[in-house]
Design a protein around this nucleic acid. Sequence first.
DNA 1: ACTTGACACCTAGACTGACTATGCTTAGAG
DNA 2: CTCTAAGCATAGTCAGTCTAGGTGTCAAGT
Lengths: 101, 101
Amino acid sequence: MDAYGHLDGMLLAILAAEPAHGYAIAQALKDRSGGVFDLPEGTIYPALHRLERSGLLDSEWSTATGRRRRVYRLTARGRRAADGARRDWSRFAGAIEAVLA
Amino acid sequence: MDAYGHLDGMLLAILAAEPAHGYAIAQALKDRSGGVFDLPEGTIYPALHRLERSGLLDSEWSTATGRRRRVYRLTARGRRAADGARRDWSRFAGAIEAVLA
DNA sequence: ACTTGACACCTAGACTGACTATGCTTAGAG
DNA sequence: CTCTAAGCATAGTCAGTCTAGGTGTCAAGT
């Protein structure tokens, strides 16, 4: 099961709760989805970079326990995009369900 | 809004109701989805061909009003796949909603 | 007559996002 | 001292969708 087309929205939603680093985001995605979205790092890191490049996230390094982590947080635009993603999802899911019904 | 990853399931669902030809399927998709899935023919015809090649559909020409139409119907495997697609969707939608919540 | 728009099919190629595979480092457990 | 989990990264592949173009019929309007 892949997250095609909805990954960005989910990343934004997770970061809307609180800032987090990539690995933790991946785990949150897996936990919250009940194991459905157990996405490889090669999926999530590039997505985070893309979101940062497009100004929805920003990040900084934190060397917590001797381990370096890049912690991401939503920008103002990112917060708006997170809301937009929720709306887009509703519309999308409603449409699909209307067809499948 | 594109249907990435869910087009096959929707096509199968539409044909689960009754056999139909490509153009009618495209319209059903648009109507049922409230205009959300107004997909170009270059999307839907190749998808139908793919589903037929993989044995989920079969088809035959019908020359109704002087217009030639290729009418598609579900095979037995296609019917099972349609049910599977519904289950996959539930799982997928549930997972996404759990993350977005 | 002619034009427009809906009906009806088709395909090659570009695009794009997710995935595969791989590589690197540090910390802790056995 | 080896193995697993934590943690980041990127180059390249793949598949599904879309873009853009093509063919032809039929009905209605001008």
